[in-house]
């Protein structure tokens, strides 16, 4: 659980300004939803926190220290697709996180160490409800199951901050709401800071403790590339008025039996 501080971050590609004047403070344990029109730089912003891209100006500080210029185990990620390794079984996909940390050269754990790690992997798979699929390859799983696996995989490293890039965008509505429950539960039990990019406004308000919108407040019709997107709304969801209108989770059906 860690706090993230973004100080006057700009992102430019040559003459084109994608993001400008981004200032944001995310206290530890926040669950931030990021929304905005397509192409407004939400994913670019996420990539900068991830270390996949560097800001042109400004700083990103995680617990007061500038984030490294490359992805690392302190920042976990779940992408919309291709997050899991197709050549590893479900449990191996989770195990690899333990193996990479413990075996710098071979990247493979053997013997007792492997058994201990596998025990932890089973617990993680249990949390996301994939225990009975441990031996399958990802291609044999549905889209929702693959995303649950990607989450379990990310949780294995106990990241300070978890980044979700439209993680449920490709799922059907039923699966989506199951995933919401799961993520909300994991967020509470694992005490993480989560930043989620989404196109689904409803999802953004349901899950987030704070909803942030990106947009371009200024436009120059002659030179549209000269102004980038920035934070246009920052809505705290723990505000009592908003919370009152926030959809409550439906009561558990088992209560009525």
């Amino acid at each position: 659980m860690s706090e993230l501080l973004i100080r006057n971050v700009w992102k430019e590609y040559g003459a084109q300004i994608v993001l400008e004047r981004i200032n944001l403070h995310l206290p530890a344990g926040s669950f931030v939803s990021l929304v905005g029109p397509s192409g407004c730089g939400k994913t670019t912003f996420l990539r900068m926190i991830l270390g996949q891209e560097q800001p042109t100006r400004g700083d990103i500080l995680l617990d007061g220290k500038p984030i490294p210029r490359e992805p690392g185990p302190d920042r976990g990620v779940v992408f919309q697709r291709y997050s899991v390794f197709p050549h590893l079984t479900v449990i191996e996909n989770v195990l690899i996180g333990f193996e990479l940390a413990a075996a710098p050269f071979s990247g493979v754990l053997r013997g007792l160490a492997r058994e201990e790690a596998l025990e932890q992997c089973r617990a993680l798979l249990d949390q996301v409800g994939l225990s009975e699929h441990a031996g399958k390859f990802p291609r044999a799983l549905s889209g929702g199951m693959q995303q649950r696996l990607a989450i379990a995989q990310a949780l294995a490293k106990k990241p300070k901050i978890l980044l979700l890039d439209e993680p449920f965008g490709a799922l059907d509505p039923g699966t989506k709401s199951q995933m919401h429950e799961l993520v909300r539960h994991l967020w509470k039990t694992n005490a993480m800071t989560i930043v989620m990019v989404t196109h689904d406004i409803r999802e953004a308000f349901e899950l987030g403790t704070r909803v942030i919108t990106f947009d371009r407040p200024r436009r120059d019709p002659q030179a549209p590339e000269r102004y980038g997107a920035t934070i246009t709304y920052d809505i705290p969801m723990n505000d009592p008025i908003i919370s009152a209108h926030k959809p409550q989770p439906r009561p558990d059906a088992s209560l009525f039996q």
């Binding site: 991830l50 996949q52 490359e70 992805p71 690392g72 185990p73 920042r75 976990g76 990620v77 992408f79 697709r81 291709y82 997050s83 899991v84 390794f85 690899i96 996180g97 193996e99 990479l100 940390a101 710098p104 050269f105 071979s106 990247g107 493979v108 990607a150 995989q153 990310a154 294995a156 490293k157 990241p159």
Partner: peptide, 19 residues
Amino acid sequence: EQFIKAQTLGASTWQYIVR
């Protein structure tokens, strides 16, 4: 995505190659 994911799971260049 896999290239990034591997790094967030702690992979070094060598580990990314072999695993």
